[in-house]
Design a protein around this nucleic acid. Sequence first.
DNA 1: ACGTTAAATCTTGTAGACAACAGTCTTCCG
DNA 2: CGGAAGACTGTTGTCTACAAGATTTAACGT
Lengths: 220, 220
Amino acid sequence: MLDQPSLVTLADQEIRRLILAGELAPGQRLYEAKLSEQLGISRPPLREALRVLAAQGIVRQTPRQGYRVVELSEQDVDEIYSLRAVLEQFALDLALPALRTEDLAELDTIMSRMWHAARTASEPAIVAANREFHLGLVALARHKRLSHAYAAVMDQMQLCMSKNLRAEAHQSGTLFEGCRRHERLLDAIRTRDPNQVRRELARHGERTFLDRAGSTGSGG
Amino acid sequence: MLDQPSLVTLADQEIRRLILAGELAPGQRLYEAKLSEQLGISRPPLREALRVLAAQGIVRQTPRQGYRVVELSEQDVDEIYSLRAVLEQFALDLALPALRTEDLAELDTIMSRMWHAARTASEPAIVAANREFHLGLVALARHKRLSHAYAAVMDQMQLCMSKNLRAEAHQSGTLFEGCRRHERLLDAIRTRDPNQVRRELARHGERTFLDRAGSTGSGG
DNA sequence: ACGTTAAATCTTGTAGACAACAGTCTTCCG
DNA sequence: CGGAAGACTGTTGTCTACAAGATTTAACGT
């Protein structure tokens, strides 16, 4: 067994972690019996967790064929990035007018963690900090549904990254450049100027710190 | 029993229908035993369906307290409408450049159904046509994730409507005005002029044909 | 030798039963 | 008479078992 707060929740989190960490590869089939045994739970709560993951676009279910980790086509990646950009832009449009200085404190601490991760070239820590940063950014809008939708897209983005971008991420120069990009975005937000934020966000979206440009050309 | 294509799917659709039709009221508790008996299925597939509905924001689950139909606060309604507006705007931004005339044929047939529903003052048919229209609109963008997210928001909008707006919807004048508003939006789309579409969409979003303005004042 | 069919195995879908927890009502004590 | 504690009922959480369908493999016929 894992713990007490609902085996469904635990299974959800654990499977999500396995997938985003790349231990369950895209396209890989998820056998319920094997997974439930591996997690130490029975199939019913596992199945509920898989339904949730399917609703969030992390796994894909086909009626009598079970579940697979989603495989992302180039079009899928485009969808994810474009949707992410729209949601984040909307979040900042909402957040900027009512933004208080102390709201950004949390983002600052996240940035310090990101810098530390970059210095130690710890890719998992970078990915985690990146995720927290952007979730925190969107949370500024105080829009629950927006945050929820954004979190789902964020998971799918990590799904792309775990597949494509290992090589680039390991170049520490890219890591520091990613941190700088985040800092610039944060500075733009501090100015409260929507146009400046929009400009910085556009640059940020195109070349998200774990850079996508290099890998898109090679795909189908 | 219901049919063959997965009792989970059937239960999902049926419960969603019950909720959106107002037969299961907001805030109402959903007892698994009662619901499963009512649907003629056992609890495991029902629970999976409820997980999906919870992920889509139709029902709310609290750990040892079961499921309830979501109750929407004024802030929730604001969130839903604002998110809807952003997603639909994005959809049309994507769709307009590559739009072909024949893509709008389906929307025209939906509009004819909507006019017919308005003439016969059939509120359920109006609601259905409205839903199809907007889903079709967003589908023009050919963006699966966008359509998926929009569908969830659309369900939540119908959740608002089933609660608040019965009285107004029955005034046939409002119904025809709603149809006209949709036609104007469709005309704007035909022009392929983003600004014109954006303008029409702004008007459309604020006062969605089953009008919200009258009822928001009365709520908490 | 190749295609087709049938059987066997494996996997998902579903059902029913048991355990743990929450809420409620009653009872007992102050 | 009021409040708190304990038992009881009911509901959710979880597990094991069974049924139906899909896939694969092997055997048989052409």
